[in-house]
C-alpha cells in the first residue's frame, strides 16, 4: 500500500489504465494544460502526450456524442468536466443515448464512455458551480454512477469503469481532493454496486454519499466521544446501489440517517429513505432522517454558504435526534474546507 491523495490516486489510475489499454484516451476542456484538471490529468499528458490526452473546444453536448461515437468504434474515452454542472449541456447524449444504447439497439456492447465530473464546494462558487448531480444521473437505467469518497475508491472505481462496457459517470468532490489514504499500487478495480463500511457501529446507521461519507465518519468520531456507536456506510456507487449492505446495517441499528451533498427532494437521500420504508420498515425504531443542503440554489456569501451545506455537526444533531438524546457536544469541528486557500 502507498499513501496517496485523492487527486494523485485518480492520476495514477488514469496512467495505469492508459498503459494497459491503448484504447483509453483522456478528453476535455483543458485536460492538457499546466494545471491538468487539479493535477489529475497532468501525469497522463506528460507520459502519453497530445495524441491521447486531448484538449477539446467548448462543446459539451457534441463532445459527449463524439465520445460515444469513438467508443462505438472501440475507443474508451474519459471525458472530464472540471465542474459537473457543465454536464447539463451533455445530458441528451449521456441520458438519451449512452445510457440507452445497449438496450435501444440491443447492441452486443454498450458504449464505454467514462464521464468524470468534479463537484465544486464552498469558496463562493455559487449556484451554477457547486451542485452535485448524482441523483439526476442515477435516475437513468443503463448508466453506472459512482461518487468515490476515498483515494482508494477514486482509483478503483475509475479502473472498473475503464474495464467495463457500461457508460459511467464518476462524480468527484473537490473538497476530497487533498484527502490522503491508502491506495493499492496496482490498478485493482472496485466493482460498482458494492458499498464500503467506513466504520462499524450499533446505535445508528449513517449512509453518506460522496463528501458526506467523509463527514459522516467525522460525525461518528464525535458521537463516539459521547458513547454513541454510529455505523457509517459509503455506498460508493449509487447505480447500481448496494441495498443489501444498507438494509443489513439497518437491521442491526434500527436507525437511519442519510446524508447527501445534494437536495433532499427526489434525491439520493429520498431513495435510501424509500428503501428503508419498503424493505426495512419492520426494523426501524425511529423515523429516517435526511441531512442535505437546504432547498435553495447554493448561495455565495460566506455565512449563507455555511448555513447551506450540511456539516458533521448537522449529521451529529440528526443522530442525537433519532436517538432522542440531547447531548451538547463538547467541541466544534473545523469545516472540511477551512484550510482551503482559494481561489478555485
Amino acid at each position: 500500500m502507498q499513501r496517496l491523495k485523492y487527486w494523485q490516486a485518480i492520476s495514477q489510475g488514469l496512467v495505469q489504465c492508459m498503459e494497459r489499454d491503448p484504447a483509453v484516451i483522456i478528453t476535455g476542456i483543458g485536460v492538457d494544460d499546466f494545471k491538468g484538471i487539479f493535477g489529475t490529468t497532468r501525469a497522463a499528458f506528460e507520459r502519453f502526450g497530445a495524441a491521447r490526452v486531448i484538449d477539446i473546444p467548448n462543446c459539451e453536448n457534441a463532445f459527449a456524442g463524439i465520445a460515444i461515437g469513438a467508443a462505438a468504434m472501440g475507443k474508451r474515452p474519459v471525458v472530464v468536466h472540471p465542474r459537473n454542472d457543465f454536464m447539463f449541456l451533455a445530458f441528451d447524449q449521456i441520458m438519451n443515448l449512452a445510457a440507452k444504447w445497449k438496450y435501444m439497439y440491443q447492441a452486443k456492447r454498450g458504449v464505454p464512455v467514462v464521464f468524470r465530473g468534479i463537484v465544486g464546494r464552498g469558496w463562493g462558487q455559487g449556484a451554477t458551480h457547486s451542485q452535485s448531480l448524482q441523483s439526476v444521473f442515477a435516475h437513468f437505467p443503463g448508466l453506472h454512477v459512482a461518487v468515490p469518497a476515498s483515494p482508494a475508491d477514486a482509483k478503483g472505481l475509475l479502473v472498473a469503469a475503464l474495464r467495463e462496457d457500461t457508460p459511467a459517470v464518476l462524480l468527484e468532490n473537490r473538497a476530497l481532493y487533498e484527502l490522503e489514504g491508502d491506495v493499492p499500487e496496482e490498478p485493482v478495480p472496485i466493482p460498482f454496486g458494492k458499498a464500503r463500511i467506513v466504520r462499524e457501529g450499533t446505535d445508528v446507521t449513517i449512509v453518506g454519499a460522496s463528501l458526506m461519507a467523509y463527514e459522516a465518519a467525522r460525525a461518528a468520531d464525535l458521537l463516539a466521544e459521547h458513547g454513541i456507536s454510529a455505523e457509517v456506510i459509503d455506498p460508493r456507487s449509487l447505480r447500481p446501489l448496494d441495498t443489501g449492505t444498507i438494509l443489513e446495517s439497518l437491521r442491526k441499528t434500527g436507525r437511519l440517517i442519510v446524508a447527501d451533498t445534494s437536495w433532499a427532494m427526489y434525491g439520493f437521500s429520498a431513495e435510501v429513505a424509500a428503501l428503508a420504508a419498503e424493505h426495512g420498515h419492520a426494523c426501524l425504531k425511529a423515523p429516517v432522517r435526511r441531512v442535505t443542503p437546504l432547498d435553495c440554489p447554493a448561495p455565495v456569501s460566506r455565512p449563507l454558504e455555511e448555513a447551506f451545506h450540511p456539516t458533521p455537526m448537522t449529521i451529529v444533531r440528526a443522530c442525537l435526534d433519532v436517538l432522542e438524546l440531547t447531548a451538547t457536544t463538547s467541541r466544534a469541528l473545523a469545516d472540511v474546507q477551512a484550510r482551503f486557500p482559494g481561489p478555485y
Binding site: A62, G65, G69
Partner: peptide, 18 residues
Amino acid sequence: ILGQTLAVAVGSAWAFAM
C-alpha cells in the same frame, strides 16, 4: 433526437482518423 447522431458520426470518424 434531432442532431444527436451528427456528433456520434463525428466521433466515429475521429476514431478512424486516430
